[in-house]
Design a protein around this nucleic acid. Structure first.
Length: 132
DNA sequence: TTTCTAACA
DNA sequence: TGTTAGGA
């Protein structure tokens, strides 16, 4: 049994995830509805989160605190999936280490993009200061 | 008792 | 996001 299956094994109910992440059940369910996490379900339709799900939720929480909104987080996750799946080799980066360098480039582009087309910015408040 | 969905004084 | 109703 490798790490992958281990990290994705459905283990804890929302009550445990609440404690682990310090997020409200409302938030956890909302983030799922938004497509940021996809916990499996029990026969009784109750959510069962994997270690990976908890990890993602912690990252979501962290990014939200840094001023990134849900749409931004969604894109960050999409970007990671696009270049994490190709890395089947040894240097598989975990956690939020993708972030620093690539996240900065991405966020900066978002600022430029939103500035050009006047759409709702993906970045809120002070975060934009990191890119002057 | 815990969790689920849906909806909003 | 919080909170609550009503059911499983």
């Amino acid at each position: 049994m490798n790490d992958h299956i281990r990290r994705n094994m459905p283990l804890f109910p929302i009550s445990i995830v609440k404690k682990l992440t310090e997020l409200s059940a409302r938030q956890i369910r909302y983030y799922e509805e938004y497509g940021l996490v996809f916990p499996s379900r029990t026969e009784g339709n109750q959510r069962l989160f994997s270690f990976n799900d908890v990890d993602r939720l912690l990252e979501i929480k962290s990014l939200l605190e840094r001023g990134v909104n849900l749409q931004g987080i969604r894109e960050i996750f999409l970007l990671r999936e696009h270049n994490t799946s190709k890395t089947a080799g040894p240097p598989m980066r975990r956690d939020g280490d993708l972030t620093d360098l690539e996240l900065r480039r991405h966020l900066k582009n978002e600022l430029v993009y939103t500035g050009k087309y006047g759409r709702t910015s993906l970045i809120q408040g002070q975060l934009s200061r990191f890119f002057d």
